[in-house]
Amino acid sequence: MPSSVPADVPGVALRPARVPRGSGFSLMLSELRVLFARRRTWALLLALAAIPVLVAVAVRVSSSVPPGRGPAFLDRISQNGLFVAFTAMLVSVPLFLPLTVGVVAGDTIAGEANLGTLRYLLVAPAGRVRLLLVKYAGALAFCLVAPLTVGVAGAAIGAALFPVGPVTLLSGDVIQPPEAAVRILLIAAYLAVSLAGLSAIGLFLSTLTVVPVGAMAATVVVSVVSQVLDQLPQLEWLHPWLFSHYWFGFGDMLRQPVLWDTFASNALLQAGYITAFGALAYGRMVTKDVLS
């Protein structure tokens, strides 16, 4: 009977339950464990790892690529296997990375709601805000792992199929393979930052619905729309505000010395998106009726 419930009992409804410190951390760990134990997450990462393999095998079996044709760095692969990593990361930026990130970010809240587990998560002494933060942190972890997978798989398959040697940077300077590995990690970090804004959008969209596929599709569509808008010269005033604007700026990690301006602008822009859409997701999360 509703009347029998004392009014001041902290409930799941609006007030986050008071929980001991540290439970956020264990919740985080369990979220990461669930995320990376999922077969779907592994399938996504495997699909990403397949991109450099495809690129490397295609270059291996075909005749040499004339310089200046195809995506940047493609013509360098046959001389240096490490360029597989750069080419694969370049190829995966416009669609594959946003696609996988969209799947993970769109699933965060809507997936739990769809499985009917969201209310259990909220019954557990966690609180909605904390749950939101943990879910977003999980999505961010995937943002970091996804480009890293492409880069590492690219370097590995490149080293297996082609000679590995000093890498020529865009500036014409030559760096040794260990430093090239650092550059690959830098690019992965750059891409992880680039995808953080999209993750926040996906998180917000995920709070709107109980159908995870809808949130995933919407997130991917948003990323495609943003990239299309970025191509229209008529909308030049809008370009610096699009979250995909700096996605291809990772080439600046391949200059000598590294051009950090793009990294900084990108991080600032993504932080803006995280703030705006994080606040929206917060508003939606703490006001919504959790019925499933």
Partner: peptide, 29 residues
């Protein structure tokens, strides 16, 4: 759990003012 959900629904009328407050960050950000 259903009871809590019901309680949430029941309290949502007086809570509308507070629900409105919770959108403040979304506007402020």
């Amino acid at each position: 759990i259903m009871g809590s959900g019901g309680r949430f629904n029941r309290r949502s009328t007086p809570g509308t003012r507070r629900a409105w407050l919770r959108w403040v960050p979304a506007v402020a950000a």
